[in-house]
């Protein structure tokens, strides 16, 4: 359900109709940005990373949250290594 893919807005094509160009790994497509501009001018969303679904930018990707998720996973990896080391040394 609901295929979505991150892409970066690289240009505005029609400010009045809230249309912009998104770039996904070099493939470009015109998308509607009505859902992600909020109170900003349409032009201000150039450079935004957005989640694209059926020709609409549906969400502004929150970089801090992405980093946070990866940080949690890194920490989990470190914790797992410690557990493994403890098991190996017979302390568990």
């Amino acid at each position: 359900m609901c295929l979505g893919i991150p892409g970066r807005i690289v240009a505005i094509t029609d400010a009045s109709r809230k249309l912009a160009t998104v770039d996904v790994a070099g493939v470009k497509r015109e998308i509607n940005v009505a859902c992600i501009i909020g109170d900003r001018a349409v032009e201000d969303c150039v450079g935004d990373w957005v989640l694209v679904h059926v020709g609409f930018a549906m969400s502004l990707i929150n970089e801090e949250q992405a980093i946070e998720t990866l940080r949690i996973l890194t920490e989990l990896g470190e914790a797992q290594q410690e557990i493994a080391a403890m098991r190996a040394s017979g302390r568990m």
Binding site: A34, L51, S59, E63, Q65
Partner: peptide
């Protein structure tokens, strides 16, 4: 919510309005 980078707790108000 594991998908905080894309899905905010309150969702998207412009989308909900439409």
């Amino acid at each position: 919510n594991q998908y905080g980078r894309v899905a905010p707790r309150d969702g998207n108000s412009a989308a909900q309005d439409a």
